[in-house]
Write a protein that binds this DNA or RNA. Sequence first.
DNA 1: CCTCCATCGCAACTCCAAGTTGCGATCTCC
DNA 2: GGAGATCGCAACTTGGAGTTGCGATGGAGG
Lengths: 184, 184
Amino acid sequence: MRAAVLDATLAELADGGYAGLTIDKVARRAGVHKTTVYRRWPNRERLVADVLGEHLTTDFPIPDTGSLADDLRALAQAFVAWVTSPPGRMIFTAIYSDAARFTEIDDVRRDLFEYGPRRAKLVVERAVARGELPVGTNPVAVIRTLIAPIYFQLTVVSEPVDEHTAEQAAGIALAAARAGVFHL
Amino acid sequence: MRAAVLDATLAELADGGYAGLTIDKVARRAGVHKTTVYRRWPNRERLVADVLGEHLTTDFPIPDTGSLADDLRALAQAFVAWVTSPPGRMIFTAIYSDAARFTEIDDVRRDLFEYGPRRAKLVVERAVARGELPVGTNPVAVIRTLIAPIYFQLTVVSEPVDEHTAEQAAGIALAAARAGVFHL
DNA sequence: CCTCCATCGCAACTCCAAGTTGCGATCTCC
DNA sequence: GGAGATCGCAACTTGGAGTTGCGATGGAGG
């Protein structure tokens, strides 16, 4: 039953966004009564936060190809793949809505964009160790620069992202890092 | 009176966001009755769209220093300055909320991120003409890459942006453009 | 098989904001 | 100084959030 409600919430989130999300609609879609939903989740925010937590994958693989360019490409591709998947899209529409004003949901965003880069920065550190990048390069800044263009195209330009977007993002981060832009 | 309501809306938008925006509160803050607001604006969305349209500056100056690096720096600084100003912040919180689901408000975003780059790409085209960048460089992509890191830090990382952010954004866009990442 | 306890469905609430309506007062412009 | 427009005000309707009390059901243990 819990699963049915979570799925229904995700689906409702997909077409109406957070603003159009009503507990009643979620309950009906899940084939359950409104009261039942309220008995398990105290409010909308907690319900949505629960859904997001369920579909959040912070344990994506960290590539180690021996080449920074390839590693960045792989990371960008993985991010694009996740973000274009149904759960990824839904999580995005949820996170970047008014729901983000609630700490429960804002925490999910932090998990996504702080814990993620904290793991992914490994590829940058390895590149520095290999001598591919100057010593003193800020690893988290490189990863952020890798994500930013994809994120920008997705939310601002609202054009679909694909492999080419990932490719370009990797190119941007690589060129900037090599030029020493992220030097401390 | 119209001005008082628009100012009050902007102020309400600032502390409560779009989700916390109620016509009643706006009216009270403006020293006006709720009905009066409804007589001039049919709904919340139109009111907010009206406010945004009022404070939108699409006619920012296009720098022409003779150096792409300096031009990009100037553009980034201008964007940071606008985005950290009170109206800029308010417009941002409004645009990146559920309000964006309404076409009236989404149009404002398009004006901001399509018309802006369309003008700013001049500095890139001039750089190509000067031979600073390879022929065939996509000018809009360069401008987007300039904006993306600033936007990312502002909305995702939710850390304050400053001159250093602008500096780094300019460095990223410049390095990537020189490396030929935006080649068609 | 039967009882007990937990869970669910259901209807009937309260509360609050969106948006509407009718009317009386006021202000303005000619 | 009168007509038309604008505003204040109170009293609605509608719809979703969240709550409460009660009755039905269903599974586990004796």
